[in-house]
Amino acid sequence: DYEVGESVTVMDGPFATLPATISEVNAEQQKLKVLVSIFGRETPVELTFGQVSKI
């Protein structure tokens, strides 16, 4: 299970290999909103559970 505030690594898509912090969890739809730090700015990205891995 994923929790808000948890650190994960993006495994898929254009942000693969980047660390991210979970900002929202939708367990019903198996989706997460995460904040990816790009060029010093936090960018919100919506991903599925399968696109991230716990650190």
Results as ranks from 00 to 15, higher is better:
Asp1Trp: 14
Asp1Met: 15
Asp1Lys: 13
Asp1Ser: 14
Tyr2Gly: 02
Tyr2Lys: 01
Tyr2Val: 03
Tyr2Pro: 04
Tyr2Cys: 03
Glu3Leu: 12
Glu3Ala: 13
Glu3Lys: 13
Glu3Ile: 13
Glu3Arg: 13
Glu3Asn: 11
Val4Gln: 05
Val4Asp: 03
Val4Thr: 05
Val4Ile: 10
Val4Pro: 08
Val4Asn: 04
Gly5Trp: 04
Gly5Asp: 04
Gly5Asn: 05
Gly5Gln: 03
Gly5Arg: 03
Gly5Thr: 02
Gly5Tyr: 04
Gly5Ser: 03
Gly5His: 03
Glu6Val: 05
Glu6Phe: 05
Glu6Thr: 07
Glu6Met: 13
Glu6Lys: 05
Glu6Ile: 06
Glu6Gly: 08
Glu6Leu: 06
Ser7Gly: 08
Ser7Thr: 15
Ser7Cys: 11
Ser7Lys: 14
Ser7Pro: 07
Val8His: 00
Val8Trp: 02
Val8Ser: 00
Val8Glu: 01
Val8Thr: 01
Val8Ala: 02
Thr9Trp: 15
Thr9Val: 15
Thr9Leu: 15
Thr9Gln: 10
Thr9Tyr: 12
Thr9Ile: 15
Thr9Pro: 01
Val10Ala: 02
Val10Asn: 01
Val10Pro: 03
Val10Gln: 00
Val10Lys: 00
Val10Glu: 01
Val10Tyr: 01
Met11Lys: 09
Met11Thr: 13
Met11Arg: 09
Met11Phe: 04
Met11Ile: 15
Met11Leu: 13
Met11Cys: 08
Met11Asn: 10
Asp12Tyr: 12
Asp12Leu: 09
Asp12Val: 14
Asp12Ile: 11
Asp12Trp: 14
Asp12Arg: 08
Asp12Cys: 10
Asp12Gln: 10
Gly13Leu: 02
Gly13His: 03
Gly13Val: 02
Gly13Tyr: 03
Gly13Ile: 02
Gly13Pro: 03
Pro14Tyr: 07
Pro14Gly: 04
Pro14Trp: 06
Pro14Cys: 09
Pro14Glu: 09
Pro14Phe: 07
Pro14Ala: 08
Pro14His: 06
Pro14Lys: 07
Phe15Gly: 02
Phe15Arg: 02
Phe15Ala: 03
Phe15Asn: 03
Phe15Tyr: 15
Phe15Cys: 06
Phe15Pro: 00
Phe15Thr: 02
Ala16Ile: 09
Ala16Trp: 05
Ala16His: 05
Ala16Leu: 04
Ala16Phe: 05
Thr17Val: 04
Thr17Leu: 10
Thr17Phe: 13
Thr17His: 12
Thr17Met: 12
Thr17Arg: 11
Thr17Pro: 07
Thr17Glu: 08
Thr17Lys: 09
Leu18Lys: 08
Leu18Thr: 04
Leu18Gly: 03
Leu18Trp: 14
Pro19Thr: 15
Pro19His: 13
Pro19Phe: 12
Pro19Asn: 12
Pro19Ser: 13
Pro19Glu: 12
Pro19Ala: 12
Ala20Cys: 07
Ala20Pro: 00
Ala20Trp: 02
Ala20Met: 03
Ala20Arg: 00
Ala20Gly: 14
Ala20Asn: 02
Thr21Glu: 06
Thr21Asn: 05
Thr21His: 06
Thr21Val: 14
Thr21Gln: 08
Thr21Met: 09
Ile22Arg: 00
Ile22Leu: 03
Ile22Gln: 01
Ile22Gly: 00
Ile22Pro: 00
Ile22Ser: 00
Ser23Cys: 13
Ser23Asp: 06
Ser23Leu: 15
Ser23His: 10
Ser23Tyr: 15
Ser23Arg: 10
Ser23Val: 15
Ser23Met: 15
Ser23Ala: 13
Glu24Val: 08
Glu24Pro: 00
Glu24Tyr: 11
Glu24Ser: 09
Glu24Ile: 06
Val25Ile: 12
Val25Met: 05
Val25Phe: 04
Val25Asp: 01
Val25Arg: 02
Val25Glu: 01
Asn26Lys: 07
Asn26Ile: 10
Asn26Ser: 08
Asn26Ala: 06
Asn26Phe: 13
Ala27Lys: 13
Ala27Ile: 13
Ala27Pro: 10
Ala27Phe: 14
Ala27Thr: 12
Ala27Leu: 13
Glu28Gly: 10
Glu28Met: 10
Glu28Cys: 09
Glu28Ala: 13
Glu28Asn: 09
Glu28Tyr: 09
Gln29Lys: 11
Gln29Cys: 08
Gln29Ser: 11
Gln29His: 10
Gln29Glu: 14
Gln29Ile: 09
Gln29Met: 11
Gln29Arg: 10
Gln30Ala: 08
Gln30Cys: 10
Gln30Asp: 05
Gln30Tyr: 08
Gln30Phe: 09
Lys31Ile: 14
Lys31Asn: 06
Lys31Asp: 02
Lys31Phe: 08
Lys31His: 07
Leu32Val: 10
Leu32Ala: 01
Leu32Gln: 00
Lys33Glu: 06
Lys33Pro: 01
Lys33Tyr: 10
Lys33Arg: 10
Lys33Phe: 09
Lys33Val: 15
Val34His: 00
Val34Pro: 00
Val34Thr: 03
Val34Ser: 00
Val34Asn: 00
Val34Gln: 00
Val34Cys: 09
Val34Asp: 01
Val34Glu: 00
Val34Lys: 00
Leu35Met: 12
Leu35Gln: 06
Leu35Lys: 07
Leu35Tyr: 09
Leu35Arg: 06
Leu35Thr: 10
Leu35Ser: 06
Leu35Glu: 05
Leu35Gly: 02
Leu35Pro: 00
Val36Arg: 00
Val36Trp: 01
Val36Phe: 03
Val36Thr: 03
Val36Met: 05
Val36Ile: 13
Val36Pro: 01
Val36Tyr: 02
Ser37Trp: 14
Ser37Asn: 13
Ser37Glu: 10
Ser37Tyr: 13
Ser37Leu: 15
Ser37Ala: 09
Ile38His: 10
Ile38Asn: 07
Ile38Phe: 10
Phe39Arg: 10
Phe39Thr: 07
Phe39Tyr: 11
Phe39Lys: 12
Phe39Ile: 07
Phe39Trp: 10
Phe39Cys: 14
Gly40Tyr: 04
Gly40Ile: 03
Gly40Val: 03
Gly40Leu: 04
Gly40Asp: 07
Gly40Arg: 02
Gly40Ser: 04
Gly40Asn: 07
Gly40Ala: 04
Arg41Gly: 10
Arg41Asn: 11
Arg41Ser: 12
Arg41Met: 14
Arg41Leu: 14
Arg41Phe: 13
Glu42Asp: 11
Glu42Ser: 05
Glu42Tyr: 11
Glu42Leu: 13
Glu42Ile: 11
Glu42Asn: 08
Thr43Lys: 06
Thr43Ser: 07
Thr43Asn: 08
Thr43Asp: 06
Thr43Val: 15
Pro44Gln: 15
Pro44Val: 15
Pro44Arg: 11
Pro44Cys: 15
Pro44Leu: 15
Pro44Ser: 15
Pro44Thr: 15
Pro44Tyr: 15
Val45His: 05
Val45Cys: 08
Val45Tyr: 06
Val45Phe: 07
Glu46Ile: 09
Glu46Asn: 07
Glu46Asp: 08
Glu46Val: 09
Glu46His: 07
Glu46Leu: 09
Glu46Gly: 04
Leu47Phe: 06
Leu47Lys: 02
Leu47Asn: 00
Leu47Ser: 01
Leu47Asp: 00
Thr48Gln: 09
Thr48Arg: 10
Thr48Ser: 14
Thr48His: 12
Thr48Ala: 11
Thr48Ile: 06
Phe49Arg: 02
Phe49Met: 05
Phe49Val: 04
Phe49Leu: 04
Phe49Ser: 03
Phe49Lys: 02
Phe49Tyr: 12
Gly50Gln: 14
Gly50Val: 09
Gly50Phe: 10
Gly50Ile: 09
Gly50Arg: 10
Gln51Phe: 04
Gln51Asn: 05
Gln51Tyr: 03
Gln51Arg: 03
Gln51Cys: 05
Gln51Thr: 04
Gln51Val: 04
Val52Gln: 00
Val52Trp: 01
Val52Leu: 03
Val52Ala: 05
Ser53Phe: 07
Ser53Asn: 09
Ser53Glu: 11
Ser53Thr: 11
Lys54Asn: 06
Lys54Glu: 03
Lys54Ile: 06
Lys54Thr: 05
Ile55Asp: 10
Ile55Pro: 10
Ile55Gln: 10
Ile55Lys: 10
Ile55Thr: 11
Ile55Glu: 09
